[in-house]
Measured scan of single mutants.
Amino acid sequence: MSIQHFRVALIPFFAAFCLPVFAHPETLVKVKDAEDQLGARVGYIELDLNSGKILESFRPEERFPMMSTFKVLLCGAVLSRVDAGQEQLGRRIHYSQNDLVEYSPVTEKHLTDGMTVRELCSAAITMSDNTAANLLLTTIGGPKELTAFLHNMGDHVTRLDRWEPELNEAIPNDERDTTMPAAMATTLRKLLTGELLTLASRQQLIDWMEADKVAGPLLRSALPAGWFIADKSGAGERGSRGIIAALGPDGKPSRIVVIYTTGSQATMDERNRQIAEIGASLIKHW
């Protein structure tokens, strides 16, 4: 067993022997301040990774656009098919120029040779490549099948209805392509620590998230040296922004954090800054 596999296998073990965790309302004060600064709703939840206990939450059962955070769930569904012998990570998928959609920095470079399922998941999570996500959605049967996968996990809230990039439209009061912070946090925890996926697939999923290259201005910008984070960000229309993450000190994750916002007129930089400040408060009061 590799060191990384050992780390993920012992996530519940280490967490069980940690000192009790206590909620700190100071972080919620910052979440509410972010709402004021952005002029928009902000949803927040913080779960203990081992027990699933909610440590703090704000608007945990209000719907927010998922945006690209759905790509972690998508690759979880792909990995479940791999575990069941219905898919192979090494299978190569070929596609054409007509398949390319807006923001496809990886797939646009491989029109000639195609990409493997493993490479597509890596591109979808680490670079948020939209064509990679659409190609992977095709392998599982489309958005409705991802929703069905989530329902089978016990998540009857999260739903995907459309493809990239239309799913980022974020129309107010439109339930399409949305989740709730509580539902997303619980589902992410199941994917990373539950028995739904094999140990190898859980490790692969967290490795992809740990290698995320496009979430630097968010929670990662607030992390002290030595902290662990595996995350996936999302951005959408109407001032929408979000991030889902597993993080913790001492090089291992111990909490799940989900943050979503929508309806702001603020710039992307300002949305990023507010999420980073929430992260800084979380870490300060850990």
Rank of each mutant, 00 (worst) to 15 (best):
S281W: 08
W208R: 01
H110A: 10
A276E: 08
P249E: 08
Q274I: 12
L100M: 14
N152L: 13
T126H: 06
L73M: 11
A230T: 00
I283N: 03
T138V: 12
C121E: 00
A200E: 14
Y95P: 05
R271S: 09
G76Q: 00
R220L: 06
P181N: 00
V78D: 02
A84P: 04
I283R: 05
E237Y: 14
S221K: 12
R241H: 06
T262W: 09
D161W: 00
Q37L: 14
Y260W: 00
W286E: 03
D250T: 13
L120E: 01
I93T: 05
V157A: 11
E119I: 00
E237N: 14
W163F: 10
L205Q: 01
E270V: 11
A124R: 01
L205I: 10
F149R: 07
G248V: 00
A40Y: 04
T107K: 01
D99C: 05
K32Y: 09
A170G: 13
I54Y: 08
D250Y: 12
T179R: 03
R273G: 11
W227P: 00
K53I: 13
N134C: 00
G52D: 07
A215C: 04
L28M: 13
K284F: 10
P224E: 06
L205K: 02
T178Y: 01
R273F: 10
L47V: 15
A148F: 12
E166M: 15
M180N: 15
T27L: 08
D36S: 14
G279M: 07
L199C: 15
K144Y: 10
L47N: 03
P105A: 05
Q88P: 05
S254E: 14
T116E: 14
T116A: 07
E195V: 08
E87P: 03
K252T: 13
A84H: 14
T131F: 07
G154W: 04
A215K: 04
W227H: 02
R202A: 11
L218F: 03
E35M: 04
M184R: 01
I283D: 01
V257E: 03
D231S: 05
V257P: 01
A182M: 13
S240E: 08
M209D: 00
A235T: 07
A266P: 06
M115N: 03
A123N: 04
A200P: 14
E62R: 05
A215W: 01
V42H: 03
A215H: 04
N173L: 12
L282A: 11
G236T: 06
L196H: 14
